[in-house]
């Protein structure tokens, strides 16, 4: 039997690597001004967030976590536990690293929400937008996260700014998906009622669709935060400072304790952020919708 039936024939060749490389270096050269502006803007935003976190004394943060947990979960023991866990991070000498990580997460999440929420509404309202954005989202979610690091570095260099970009790209799909899913699953009769009473499209959106979709949208916010936190650690490979960089140093120097301490801190941050954002929005009419949308996430 001929060889080409067993091995994929070398004569069929399609080179996409070089065109992509060329494309990136093309925009790198020709869009320099644009990327400079983006870098500057993001750096400014990051600085602002950093400054804000910086002026909060450590004990205020601990207290805030304590109070917020108590209010949202109504469980004082859990509030004590979370505060202690936060203090645990500080006691490992990782407080300032945690703050840096938090700054990147917050910046990325703000960007994701500002871009993702309107996009989600757009996807919900039009079949065309859905047809365009859905495959893009699928690609974004299945693409290995490391791949985002390469163009981010090429275009924006090393450091926290490309980390914010990569994190935003990685974290934006859930807010888009769940915003659109939430709006689409609003009871058709309720939307029809809004129209029948003479609501404009804007009124229907603001007064009926978004509030009705809120539990699902909040699940999206929660997911976006979680994904941002996961990505920010990966981003330390391109020079993002914070807990992730401690992990990288731990790997490079084979310092297991160092890596583990930073890793545990990330887990603690994740747990606190997750529980707090889940607890913030309590729908008036029971948790049914929120539960349904959680099921939707798990089903994915």
């Amino acid at each position: 039997m001929p060889d080409w039936l067993y091995n994929f024939p070398e004569t069929i060749k399609l080179n996409i690597r070089e065109p992509i490389d060329e494309f990136i270096s093309y925009i790198n050269v020709n869009w320099e001004g644009f990327f400079d502006a983006v870098t500057k803007g993001l750096r400014g935003m990051l600085k602002g967030v950093n400054w804000f976190i910086g002026i909060i004394p450590w004990w205020v943060l601990v207290l805030a976590v304590f109070i917020l947990t108590w209010i949202t979960t109504k469980k004082p023991l859990r509030a004590v536990l979370y505060s202690l866990l936060l203090i645990f991070i500080g006691s490992m000498g990782l407080w300032s690293y945690m703050e840096q990580t938090l700054a990147i997460v917050i910046t990325s999440v703000i960007l994701s929400l500002v871009i993702g929420f309107p996009l989600g509404i757009l996807v919900a309202s039009g079949k065309k937008a859905d047809a365009i954005i859905r495959p893009v989202l699928d690609t974004m979610q299945t693409m290995p996260s490391f791949v985002y690091l390469i163009p981010a570095v090429m275009l924006l260099g090393l450091g926290n700014v490309p980390a914010v970009i990569a994190t935003t790209i990685y974290a934006i799909p859930p807010i888009i998906r769940l915003t659109s899913h939430g709006i689409k699953q609003v009871d058709a009769e309720v939307v029809e009622a809004a129209h029948a009473f003479g609501s404009t499209r804007w009124q229907t959106l603001i007064k009926v669709q978004i509030p009705q979709a809120m539990p699902t949208i909040m699940t999206g916010v929660n997911q976006t935060i979680m994904m941002a936190l996961a990505m920010v650690v990966t981003c330390s490979m391109i020079g993002a400072t914070g807990l992730g960089s401690e992990v990288i140093i731990g790997i490079n120097r084979l310092e297991i304790g160092r890596g583990f301490a930073a890793g545990i801190s990330v887990v603690i941050m994740a747990v606190i952020l997750d529980r707090l954002t889940q607890g913030i929005y309590k729908p008036k009419g029971g948790d049914l919708v929120a539960e349904q949308s959680r099921g939707f996430i798990k089903g994915k």
Binding site: E189, A193, A196, G198
Partner: peptide
Amino acid sequence: LEFRRTKASMVFQNFGLMSHR
């Protein structure tokens, strides 16, 4: 819109009520 707001109001089979209000 004005007609719907002032002249004819609708009542629905499954009520069409907003659970967030």
